[in-house]
Write a protein that binds this DNA or RNA. Sequence first.
DNA 1: TTATTAATGATAGTAATGCTATCACGAAAA
DNA 2: TTTTCGTGATAGCATTACTATCATTAATAA
Lengths: 224, 224
Amino acid sequence: MDLALQIRMNENLYLRNPEETELGRRIIRHSILMILDLGFEAFTFKKLAVEIGSTEASTYRYFENKHRLLLYIVSWYWSWLEYKITVHTNNIEDPMERLKKVILILGTYVEDDINTPHVDEDQLFKVVMVEGAKAFLTRHVDADYKQKIFKPYKSLCDRISAIICECNPEYAYARSLSSTLVETANFQNFFKRNLPSLTDFDKDHGDAEVVKYLEQLVFSAISK
Amino acid sequence: MDLALQIRMNENLYLRNPEETELGRRIIRHSILMILDLGFEAFTFKKLAVEIGSTEASTYRYFENKHRLLLYIVSWYWSWLEYKITVHTNNIEDPMERLKKVILILGTYVEDDINTPHVDEDQLFKVVMVEGAKAFLTRHVDADYKQKIFKPYKSLCDRISAIICECNPEYAYARSLSSTLVETANFQNFFKRNLPSLTDFDKDHGDAEVVKYLEQLVFSAISK
DNA sequence: TTATTAATGATAGTAATGCTATCACGAAAA
DNA sequence: TTTTCGTGATAGCATTACTATCATTAATAA
């Protein structure tokens, strides 16, 4: 059985659905690689078009601008993460164990998912680590928020919140702790690689240290 | 006695020291206001020049580009914060109380500091909240890091780490917890204002809730 | 005093960016 | 078989992100 995972994206994000055409999928795939390579600031639709052997104008038919493309990519990632978390936790009884699993998924470098051939999750993880926050750190957050652009992020946090509440219904900051957890996982991984003196982790060790830190942080916060 | 606070900045940040001239100070002051107003992406040296009645070329004599200007502004803020923390904690005996004070300072909306007439800390706080992370989330972090550009950030975190270690010498993640604390203070404040469903805070309440959340988070993490 | 230099302003120019518009072509759908 | 749809090709345009040159003025040194 060849089952492809299809994530339904907010229609406000694109002008033409990139999942539906070959060119669209090439735009997604290569923009991830190029943003990783050049950084979001130096990435342009012109460069992307050259890379995929298309034209700037064609790219603009899919996305209004490169920031919307970033939003698309990042949103896709949050949705995929939520899906992954759901799959890996729904057979776990103990909410504590489930939360542990969530932290492991958030804090660990990701492997490529064969179910989504046009996206390289491994690369996407790095893009989100570096560029993810730029999705909402803009002048038009409010407008984007009204367009429900951040629903996947909220949805992911809601799911984590729910687990936290199961662990300790009296804990008063389940939402904030969820968003803190998600952001901290990214930031500590980024610091570890790029600003190591801001962390206690060794660049050459694996992700286990970050995961342990996050676990200790979260579990001591919610322990009764 | 009229004592002006002067923060010594890393010389790699600028081409000409903006603190030393009237034009330089106008550049700093108005860039803070304009970045707040337009957002960093839409902010340009051209617009800044028009605003301060100067020219683009003159602005380029002070800063290589707008990202360096952002680095300057953000670094200035971290240095000023460290100074503020030092002043407000060095008469406190109990390290726990000192840490509490630090959290209060980090999590609370700032008032203007009369000692630095060319900077409006109140505005700067907001700029750092929204644009601060962009200072290091770039392709050239590594190069900037080597130029010691992030020393003020590291220095701030070191100071917080030291207090954490005093509270609990066995706690293994003092650095990571410090950077997490600093980032989380900004992010939760940002979310509270712009993506409220990612937090447990009320936009219309003051900063006390965020501070309480951060206190609970930090103190439960380091409690023995 | 005069000569020098330093900081700014004025102006120009250039490559790249961030778009928008138009037209033609081929493939697919009606 | 006609229409529509997606793409490519090309053009154009205002803005951005600089760099360069020259004149002016103020501060400084000889």
